[in-house]
Design a protein around this nucleic acid. Structure first.
Lengths: 314, 314
DNA sequence: CCCGATTAGTTGACTTTGTCAAATATCAAT
DNA sequence: ATTGATATTTGACAAAGTCAACTAATCGGG
C-alpha cells in the first residue's frame, strides 16, 4: 500500500492523473444510462429525491452540484411525467418538500438496479481480496479528499483477518513516527507483540478488535492473558481521523466487557505519558496509575506508565 | 487500507458511493477552469495534444472518450484561434498530425500550472503521511479499476520507510493466504523475521529493497548476514499484478550485486516448492538446489527447499 | 406591524457538451 | 479500378450547464 515520503508535487501529479483516469472511466459508466428513458441529470435527481424524501430543491441542487435553474427545470420534467411530487413544506412556504410518486419510486428502483448491475459487471473480474483492497482504497481516498469527520456509526468493531496484524503494525509504526518521532524500534516491538499474539492465541480468553470504517482500519485493541486472573490490554491505537466520536470509549468498553465475561479479576496495561488522549480514556474507565518509570525507547526519552483496573470491585 | 472479506454487494456500493462523491468533487474542480478563455473540452484537448505531439484526431478522441464529431469541431476552434496546427501525417493522408503552436504551448502551460495549483490547494491541508496514503490509495484504485498490466519502468526499487515492514507483512500474509491457503502462522513468521531484521540491522552488510509503483508496494527482497562469508535472501515476494515485467529478475540482480559488493562468498535462501515462479528465477540466476525436506507449516503440508549460489566462482 | 435585506425557487436567453447519422476523403487489397 | 474499411468532417439536435433577472416568502430590526 505504501510509501516513502514523496514530494507534494508527486501527490499533485497523482491526483491529476487519477482525475483524468476516473473522468474517462466514469464517462463510460455514465453513457450506458442512455438505454433508459432518463437523461443523466434526471436520473441523478431521481436518485437524490428517492434517497432523501422530503428534501428541498436547494438541498438537491447543492448535493449534486447543479445550478438551481437547471434543477428547477429538471424537476418540472419529472413532475410532468408523474415521477416526483412537490408538496408544501411545513413552516416555510418558499420551499417545497420533494418526494417520489409510486411510479417514480418504481422507475428509480429499475435505474438503481441497472446501475448496480453495471458496476457489478465492472468488478466481476476481481477476486475477494482485490474487492476488499478496492473498497479500502476508495475509502482512504475519499476520507483524504473530503475534509469531514466520519460518523460514529460508520465504525465497526470486528475480529482480525489474515494480514490485519501486519497492517496494524504498519499503521501504528507510522502513526507514532509522525506524531512523536518514534523510530523503527517501535515497529519491531509491535511486530513481535502481534507475532506472539498469533502464536499463543487462546481464543477463549484473548481477543483482538479492529475498528473498521468502510474497509479501512481505524484502530485496534488487544486483550491478552497474563495469568489466570490477570488480563493485559495491548496495542491500543486510534487513527487521528477516527478520534472524537467516542470510538475509543466503545473499544475499551467492548474489551472490558469481554474481560469480565472471561472471569479476569484484574486488567493491566502499559502506556507512555505522552499519549494523553489514551490516558484520559483509561482514567474514565476506572483504571488507576500504579507505576511510572523513565525509559529510553524508540529513539526518545519517555515515561512509561502501568495502569490497573480491579474488576472484582463493583 | 483493509479489510475483512465483504460481500460483492458491499464493494459495488462502495464504488457507487465513491463515484457519486468524486463526480461532485471533480465538478467543483472543473468549474474553476472557467476563469480561463477555454471551455473544459478545449482545455482537455489542448492537454492531450500538448502531451502527445503528432497524435491524430482519433487518438485524442478515444483518449478523452469524446465523440469524433465533437472533437473535430473543438479542434477547428483551437486551430482558428492559432493554438493548434494540423499537419499532414507521414504515410496516411486521411489523418493529420496534431501539434500545438508556440501560442498554444504557452496557453497550455498557463492552464496546466493553474490546474496544478488548484489541486495543490486542495491538498494543502494534508500532511506528508496523508499525501503518501492518498497517492497509494489512488494507485491501488486505478490498478483495480483498469485491467491493464503496469509498465516495467513504473516500478522503483527503494529502501524501506517506517511502516513498510508491517505493510510487507500484511501483503505477504494475504498473498500466500489467498494463493496457497496459508494461515496466520505464516504472518507470525514474517512479523518475527522483519522484527529481527530491524533489531539486528547491519547497514553495511544487509539491505531490504521495496518495489514501489506509484506509492503502492509491489514486492520485496531482503539480504541478511548469516556469517561473514554467507548471506541469506529472505522474504522475496511479488504481487501478482507486478509479475511478468522482469521485476523479479531486476530485484534479484540488485540484491546479488549488493551481496557481491559486500564480499560475501555465498548466498543461500529457503523457499517452498509450490512457489514455482520464484524457483525459476533462482535457477536462472545460478542458484542450485541443495536440500529439500517435507514439513508441516502454515496449516499445509509443504516441501521446503534450500538453494545456494556460489559468488566466488565466475 | 412594516420595511428592507435575504433566501428559495423559477424563468428566459444563452453557451457548451454530447449524440447520431450522413458525407467525404483516403487506404489496403484484390 | 473496384470494394470495403478507416479517419475525419459536417449537419441537425438534445442535454447540460451558465448567468442574470424575477417572484414569493421569510427574517430581523425598528
Amino acid at each position: 500500500m505504501t510509501r516513502q515520503s514523496r514530494s507534494g508535487d508527486a501527490t499533485v501529479a497523482a491526483v491529476r492523473h487519477f482525475t483524468r483516469f476516473f473522468t474517462r472511466r466514469i464517462g463510460v459508466l455514465r453513457r450506458r444510462l442512455y438505454a433508459s428513458p432518463f437523461s443523466l441529470v434526471e436520473a441523478r435527481v431521481l436518485y437524490e429525491v428517492a434517497h432523501h424524501p422530503g428534501t428541498s430543491a436547494g438541498a438537491v441542487a447543492s448535493g449534486l452540484g447543479l445550478d438551481p435553474g437547471q434543477l428547477s427545470r429538471t424537476l418540472n420534467a419529472l413532475v410532468r411525467r408523474g415521477l416526483v411530487r412537490r408538496r408544501k413544506a411545513t413552516g416555510d412556504a418558499r420551499r417545497h418538500a420533494l418526494e417520489t410518486t409510486a411510479r417514480g419510486a418504481k422507475a428509480f428502483a429499475g435505474l438503481d438496479s441497472a446501475s448496480r448491475a453495471e458496476v457489478a459487471a465492472l468488478l466481476a473480474p476481481l477476486g475477494a481480496h482485490d474487492r476488499d483492497a478496492l473498497t479500502g482504497a476508495l475509502a482512504t481516498a475519499e476520507r483524504l479528499l473530503e475534509p469531514a469527520r466520519p460518523a460514529a456509526d460508520e465504525f465497526v468493531l470486528r475480529s482480525p483477518a489474515i494480514g490485519d496484524m501486519g497492517a496494524l503494525t504498519a499503521a501504528q509504526a507510522r502513526l507514532y513516527a509522525r506524531e512523536y518521532g518514534w523510530n523503527g524500534e517501535f515497529e519491531a516491538l509491535v511486530a513481535e507483540i502481534v507475532a506472539k499474539f498469533i502464536r499463543d492465541f487462546d481464543p477463549a480468553r484473548e481477543r483482538c478488535w479492529i475498528a473498521d470504517r468502510r474497509g479501512e482500519i481505524a484502530g485496534s485493541i488487544f486483550l491478552v492473558k497474563e495469568s489466570d486472573k490477570v488480563a493485559k490490554i495491548r496495542l491500543v491505537y486510534l487513527e487521528p481521523w477516527a478520534r472524537g466520536v467516542g470510538l475509543g470509549r466503545r473499544m475499551l468498553a467492548e474489551c472490558l466487557a469481554f474481560a469480565r465475561a472471561c472471569g479476569y479479576a484484574k486488567v493491566v496495561l502499559w502506556t507512555n505519558d505522552c499519549l494523553v488522549d489514551a490516558r484520559r480514556l483509561y482514567e474514565k474507565a476506572g483504571f488507576v496509575l500504579v507505576e511510572s518509570e523513565r525509559h529510553r525507547s524508540f529513539g526518545k526519552d519517555l515515561v512509561g506508565q502501568s495502569w490497573s483496573l480491579d474488576l472484582s470491585a463493583r
